[in-house]
């Protein structure tokens, strides 16, 4: 267990929950709901950028040198070769998706009560952020399982 994994996971999931909140607010937009959604989306952007930095720091300082060789030598090497490799790149999409959703709210939030198309645009991007972030959390579980199974195969 490493504190940076916990911080990275917390920031990523908090970012995902922020955009789930945004999505729910926009299902029936009013002036106060859009204002709240804009603030929450801004916090979500911040969380996802911080998750990028913290996760990247862990990946470079701990994962590459300690965890990766253990997983690759264990019974589930695909959890690194497929899952980590996918996760480390797909994760980079999230901050740009988040900036997109926040930008829609910031610039076009006041139109959303009359123009449902702009609300739909923010809902689509927010929903994708939620789905991708939780899929990435699932990938984190698989990578942890790959590491654990490698350690168990040595210990047992």
């Amino acid at each position: 267990m490493h504190a940076l994994i916990g911080i990275h996971a917390f920031l990523g999931e908090a970012g995902a929950l922020a955009f789930l909140w945004v999505l729910v607010e926009l299902l029936s937009p009013s002036e106060s709901r859009v204002r709240r959604a804009t603030r929450i989306a801004g916090i979500g952007v911040l969380f996802l950028f911080l998750a990028w930095i913290v996760g990247g720091y862990y990946y470079l300082t701990e994962y590459q040198s300690i965890v990766k060789p253990v997983i690759k030598a264990g019974p589930l090497p695909w959890t690194h070769s497929v899952i980590t490799e996918t996760k480390e790149h797909v994760f980079l999409f999230l901050p740009f998706l988040a900036l997109g959703a926040w930008s829609i709210l910031k610039r076009h939030g006041s139109e959303m009560m009359q123009n449902r198309r702009t609300a739909a645009a923010a809902i689509i991007v927010s929903a994708l952020i939620v789905l991708m972030a939780f899929s990435i959390a699932g990938m984190g579980f698989m990578i942890s399982s790959g590491f654990r199974s490698a350690l168990e195969s040595k210990a047992l």
């Binding site: 070769s81 497929v82 490799e85 996918t86 790149h89 797909v90 999409f93 740009f96 998706l97 997109g100 829609i104 076009h108 198309r117 702009t118 739909a120 645009a121 923010a122 689509i124 991007v125 994708l128 991708m132």
Partner: peptide, 23 residues
Amino acid sequence: VLSSAILLSLSAIAAGIVIFAFF
């Protein structure tokens, strides 16, 4: 804005599938 949001979303889904399939 809606068509650009759809473009962004489809790009993220398609690029994610391409990366996963490649690995």
